[in-house]
Design a protein around this nucleic acid. Sequence first.
DNA 1: CATCCGTGGAT
DNA 2: TATCCAAGGAT
Length: 323
Amino acid sequence: MSTDLRDSRPPLPASPAAAAASTPAAARVPVPAATAELHDLVIDWFGEHARDLPWRRPDAGAWSVMVSEFMLQQTPVVRVLPVHAEWLARWPRPADLARESPGEAVRAWGRLGYPRRALRLHAAATAIAHQHGGEVPHSHSELLALPGVGEYTAAAVASFAYGRRHIVLDTNVRRVFARLVTGVEYPPNATTAAERRTATALLPADEGTAAQWAAATMELGALLCTARSPQCGACPVAARCAWRLAGSPPHEGPARRGQTYAGTDRQVRGRLLAVLRASTDPVPQAALDAVWHEPVQRARALDGLVEDGLVEPLADGVYRLPA
DNA sequence: CATCCGTGGAT
DNA sequence: TATCCAAGGAT
């Protein structure tokens, strides 16, 4: 919203030159002002164009936010929407999920992918129910201690659910900063210390503004500053985007290798688990054998699922989702 | 730090 | 058809 006009925030966004040069007052003054403008531009844009997502509505609690964050880890919004609604209706509070078997969480996960997330979310709900009085923790460190919650998710829940001030570095925000600040098309493969410094430098001092900034930059990356075809014409900060000002140079260096999927253990695991999800009764070995012809890989995949706790072997070659 | 872990839509 | 990519985390 309105930005505090006093420049009480830390200096420096971009220009390494400006930062390096031990410039006296004159060169430092414009920076915080420009940063405050940046906040306003992106946050105002967000106010106009933000999607009306269930976990963003005023009545959405921290649990709704947390469930959405788990589901959105590497899965697009459109596929998350219906499953998220089912989960919140069925398990309105963490304790409700905690009372279920892990297998039911895996089943209700459906085809969102990476089903270990369902297991971890169930484990997180159990920890919340038993160790946090049933309430999703507020602090970043407590969130981080939950299974399936890493640096990003802890910051996202603290920021989106509780309005706390954190750098929130997901793939969208990292891409926005790579372009806007660093002037390159894509961020590094893994989050770097330099990215954290950039995000910290740009983080609004005011807590509420910081939370809006986090959501707004993420939305900007999701809707306009996309990986494939950025819509710079509609971008509120295109005029000061370092990448654009540099002529939108293409990504340098090796293309990030896409993970081939066909024929991998992941595909086999997916098929095996699909059979188990579809059946409320334990499944005989023969039904699992039918999904993949190669016996060695098939056995390895099944062993992996058991190892991960996604599948429970019963006696005499029968399997089911974990009770 | 590199790999592994699902799934499906868009280009 | 092949590749890319989507609100990452754990090891």
